[in-house]
């Protein structure tokens, strides 16, 4: 399974859920598959994706949003492996952490990561997190369905082939725009709103006011 094939499966299952994606090729491929208001692309912030997802999962607690989907890579997660320990300590029920593990830093010359010899799923289990595994599209679809059927946190350890999809355009969007559209979408969903963003864009208050 190539990463972009995994992302197609994930986007088909997450139209109504917040999705935060790690930087570089993963975010670009996700936006190429589907660029939606419920996507938050981290354009840099190396290693921070799982932590941001943990914060979002804490933030949506007791709201109408039951799951937050985090798309991290093996290289990105290894830059902040603490995130697994913190998730295992805090146990945010909304967290669904998808590790797209291609065994390499695919955005930086394809250099190998530790995951070629270390099992990130087992490390997550050692942190007290429930782990499911998938290495093909059918398995991934089934694992997502199972993850969304009950409270988390859940980790999906997904093995993909090395490499990036060809001819994917850069994401040349101001992060402020990305954050604002994501926040408007998410806060409305947290309040139980599912109608058009244009209808509630002016109704959603500013942060913490």
């Amino acid at each position: 399974m190539r990463r972009i094939e995994a992302l197609r499966v994930i986007t088909s299952a997450t139209a109504d859920l917040p999705v935060v994606a790690t930087c570089a090729a993963t975010s670009r491929e996700l936006a190429a598959v589907a660029d939606r208001d419920n996507h938050l692309y981290l354009l840099d912030s190396m290693g921070l994706t799982s932590s941001v997802g943990t914060g979002l999962a804490l933030g949506v607690a007791d709201s109408a949003v039951e799951h937050v989907v985090v798309l991290d890579g093996d290289g990105s997660l290894l830059m902040n492996l603490n995130a697994l320990a913190t998730a295992g300590y805090l146990l945010p029920e909304a967290l669904v952490l998808v590790i797209l593990d291609n065994g390499s830093y695919a955005s930086t010359a394809g250099l190998p990561t530790y995951s070629q010899t270390l099992d990130l799923g087992r490390i997550a289990e050692a942190c007290g997190l429930r782990v499911a595994r998938a290495d093909d599209t059918a398995g991934l679809a089934a694992a997502l369905t199972a993850a969304f059927a009950e409270p988390g946190p859940t980790v999906l350890h997904v093995r993909t082939e090395p490499g990036n999809a060809p001819d994917i355009p850069l994401l040349l969007v101001d992060p402020v725009v990305l954050a604002d559209r994501f926040r408007r979408w998410l806060t409305a969903r947290m309040a139980g709103r599912t109608d058009s963003p244009e209808r509630w864009a002016d109704e959603v208050g500013e942060v913490g006011q």
């Binding site: 921070l48 994706t49 941001v52 997802g53 914060g55 979002l56 804490l58 902040n80 805090l90 947290m190």
Partner: peptide
């Protein structure tokens, strides 16, 4: 409540607490 919790490193704290405004909260 579990409002207050330890975080292993400062950048991780920025990721977790810094994401809260995207949910309408502040930390």
């Amino acid at each position: 409540t579990r409002r207050v919790f330890p975080v292993s490193r400062e950048e991780e704290a920025v990721g977790i607490i810094g994401a809260l405004p995207l949910t309408g909260a502040f930390g």
